[in-house]
């Protein structure tokens, strides 16, 4: 294979891994606080539409990004009210959220198919962008990709080196201990679930504002589900989430390119590749880690006392 093609492929892997990375970290934050949210796919899709419409109407990509984040946070708030407020089943509520989100997007998005919106364009970072190979892969991307480079470290720092982060970890493990320590487990869970939803929303916004600049239905294309699986693959560690996200980005970019070369392989088989990899990754995680690192109270609602 030609060297230039490989570099281009890796750059594409980073780009298509970025929305997955946002969504994975968002879901990870929510799960660290003990709230399992299977609505990622629906949240990403609604956020993509909200971001596109806002950018389309206002002409500002940044406002679009904010709208995407807000849309993700709003849907996560709905999930939080159902699960934390009314002790609903987290799995059921999350699945409902996905169906709701995909339905809303399809219904409201269809009239806008083919319209364009201002989005984020690639630019080369000074100095770093002129590095050989690495510059081409990592530093000739758009602003949201650069932002995502800082995210995992910030995520780690928040959880491991700050008091609120300590409390978030504790509430995902043993809410009763948090209450006994005089903190507020329910508030903490609301906060992490909604903040996680905001991150997922940014991932969705990336799809319509940077990945494409056009609206089309089905933009999320299963990335939300991949994010849910990647949280498990990453053993709830942000560093491993980066590896996972770019691995999937790579496979997605690869199958696109392979289709473009006019290969004889049926396209549906290629489209299946990322999901086949998802299954493999989950098998690998189960075999290696036995769900190591899963917060002990993940998916378990906080029952009121007495």
């Amino acid at each position: 294979m030609d060297w230039d093609i490989l570099v281009a492929l890796l750059a594409a892997a980073v780009q298509s891994g970025t929305p997955i990375l946002y969504a994975t970290l968002g879901e990870m934050l929510s799960e660290k606080g003990g709230v399992l949210n299977l609505g990622v796919e629906g949240m990403m899709s609604v956020a993509a539409l909200a971001a596109f419409l806002t950018a389309h109407l206002t002409g500002s990509a940044w406002l679009g990004l904010a709208a995407g984040g807000a849309a993700g946070a709003c849907l996560a708030l709905l999930h939080a009210v159902v699960c934390i407020g009314f002790l609903g089943n987290q799995v059921v509520s999350g699945l409902a959220l996905t169906i709701l989100g995909l339905g809303l997007t399809h219904f409201f998005g269809t009239p806008f198919i083919g319209l364009a919106a201002p989005g984020f364009s690639k630019f080369s970072l000074p100095l770093l962008g002129s590095l050989p190979v690495l510059g081409d892969i990592l530093f000739r991307q758009d602003a949201l990709v650069y932002l995502s480079y800082l995210l995992p470290a910030g995520f780690w720092f928040f959880l491991q080196r700050t008091r609120p982060g300590l409390a978030v970890r504790a509430v995902g493990e043993m809410p009763a201990a948090v209450a006994a320590a005089g903190l507020h487990p329910l508030r903490l869970r609301f906060f992490t679930a909604v903040a996680g939803g905001g991150l997922v929303g940014l991932g969705g916004a990336y799809l319509s504002l940077a990945y494409t600049h056009l609206w089309t239905n089905g933009l999320s294309a299963g990335r939300g589900w991949i994010a849910v699986a990647l949280v498990i693959f990453a053993f709830w560690k942000p560093g491993r989430a980066v590896i996972g996200a770019y691995l999937f980005g790579g496979v997605m970019a690869f199958q696109l390119r392979l289709q473009a070369t006019g290969t004889n392989l049926p396209s549906s088989l290629l489209l299946m590749l990322p999901y086949a990899l998802t299954v493999l990754v989950l098998v690998f995680s189960a075999w290696r880690g036995r769900a190591a690192g899963a917060p002990a109270a993940l998916g378990v609602n906080i029952e009121p006392e007495g």
């Binding site: 700050t162 008091r163 609120p164 300590l166 409390a167 970890r169 504790a170 493990e173 043993m174 009763a176 201990a177 948090v178 209450a179 006994a180 320590a181 005089g182 903190l183 917060p295 002990a296």
Partner: peptide
């Protein structure tokens, strides 16, 4: 009322005093 996954020190000082 302890968090098994965290260290002794983290458990003891959980929710103690302000600061970030």
């Amino acid at each position: 009322m302890l968090v098994d996954a965290m260290s002794v020190a983290e458990n003891v000082l959980l929710g103690q005093e302000p600061g970030f």
